[in-house]
Design a protein around this nucleic acid. Sequence first.
DNA 1: CTGAAAGCGCTTACAG
DNA 2: CTGAAAGCGCTTACAG
Lengths: 340, 340
Amino acid sequence: MAVKIKDVARAAGVSVTSVSRVLNNGEHVSEKLEKKVRRAIEELNYSPSLIAKSLKRNKTNLIGVIIPDITSNFQAMILSRIEEIAGRRGYNLLVSNIVEDTGKVVKYLNIYQEMRVDGMVLMHEKLNGDIENFLNKTDIPLVVHADLGMNLPTVIIDDFQAGYDAASYLIAQGHRKIAMIAGDPRDVCAGLRRMEGYTAACRDHGIGSKETLIRHGDYKLDTGYRLMAELLGEARGEFTAVLAASDDMAAGAVNCIRDHGLHVPGDISVIGFDGSQIADIVRPRLTTIRQPVEQISERTVELLLEMIEDEGESWRKDRMKTVVLGHELVERGSCRRIEA
Amino acid sequence: MAVKIKDVARAAGVSVTSVSRVLNNGEHVSEKLEKKVRRAIEELNYSPSLIAKSLKRNKTNLIGVIIPDITSNFQAMILSRIEEIAGRRGYNLLVSNIVEDTGKVVKYLNIYQEMRVDGMVLMHEKLNGDIENFLNKTDIPLVVHADLGMNLPTVIIDDFQAGYDAASYLIAQGHRKIAMIAGDPRDVCAGLRRMEGYTAACRDHGIGSKETLIRHGDYKLDTGYRLMAELLGEARGEFTAVLAASDDMAAGAVNCIRDHGLHVPGDISVIGFDGSQIADIVRPRLTTIRQPVEQISERTVELLLEMIEDEGESWRKDRMKTVVLGHELVERGSCRRIEA
DNA sequence: CTGAAAGCGCTTACAG
DNA sequence: CTGAAAGCGCTTACAG
């Protein structure tokens, strides 16, 4: 882009100030001047530099999103909605896909900071010293999608309760022996809390939960398949139902069960988590805990823009906002009632 | 970020030039100076502005990606790989999710241009006057993922041949009446070419293709389901196999067939397209045309960086590079051989 | 090895 | 309504 505002000004025979004014259509300019400027812009095919503008204005209209895995349908749905909503408000997304590599998180947090993004969304749930350190120091508004215990603005569901509800549902259906394909316990919400909810529900209903019936995975389909195979191999007969920490893992489990010649829910009931597309794809369709994707996305952008547009930069001092959204148990075909 | 390079210089008792030098560790500085500077950076928690740097250097290390639908597993896989590969080379991704709205394409192309991205990837396949106009004018290196007929650097598979191969496979299995759930014919490759390949294969084998057996969709699962229901309602018995332009639609079709009490492949054979995760999830697993995701992503980034780093900016003048990658038919369980 | 100064392409008081 | 000029936070010849 060789052509700059100065060239336009020269071509139109006006000052750069005036060109800038018609570009940002703030202060009034005469029709005649505006016409000249527009023509010059057109003729020169001028494209104003947002980089220069950002530097001057100290605002980039960029939001950095750190997402663990774009290929997860649930996460993609959230990202897609955030993009849409933020886009309408004039913000563009910088995204980095973490894929397993926790070390990348702090790398990208730093890059985003150097890029002077106006705000960030952190979906990653695992903390380490570097990340914690960064989060404590940064002045950039951010919203996290997990209860990191750091007094940061947060948008979440009550994962403990959701895990509790899922297990309770199974128990209400008559199940007494329930296995869990859980997430990574270092993921505070999706990993730990959901499992704690399950454990608590089992305990409250006096059926206990055996360590051997709990497996940990990374929320992916293949992992669900593999862990289900393990459970079938090592504890067949010790459970009549399985609770998975993601629909992807639940879907993998369903396929694994079927590949072993067993039936869902005839032999084993399966309940998922997330309410992603895949819950509808797999047969039988998954009974699952649906997270409110639309609300999560909306509230995230809302919260973030509120902080960004709060000139006082007081978001650090205010009592942090935590938005807890409701989840919903969606009954479909993957669970059945059994006799006590 | 209140602290800037000048503050660091003052704190360290050196010039901003020197601070810049240790930051970019190019020219040599004395150990003593470097130590002072590093300490000051540490103490002030200084984060250099990439915005200012970009303005000065005329390089942003940003790549803008325009992707039709992030929630499509196939597209997410490509995006994820591009992010990974570009990230390793020091480039960050700006992404915008188009979702149906073709008008957003040119809007984002312009924003990316104003943002002075170093390069762009356009996955969207539908052209309109504005888009064409932009593509003809821009100086920014870009790679497209469809044969737009505009002499632009392109990374694709041979969609015609792939469609041809898929149909031929079905024909080789003994099928004589083949329906197609195609894409949007305005999508030159995924929509039009794949369908043309199918039509040509039918013609070459003397079995013709009836208009009534071709439906057009948007590559999504729900649409595949719906179009399959239409075919079943309006043309049941007139086909023994279906070729879909995406795995998502194929999966929807499979589920629809099953929900109608029929069997895949017992009653109807289904072949998909893409080789995305879902082809492995659905039961029976989908026989499909696998696109080389890894290569597509690699070659895209490679081509783009080649142009970006070509100082001569000669990419416009050179004969455009079109990279045509090979596809592969993966046999799984959704098709069966039938007697003539 | 080190620093003073110009300049990247904009916006925005300030003055007229 | 319009323009000259300072300045956003860096980098990079240029000079020493």
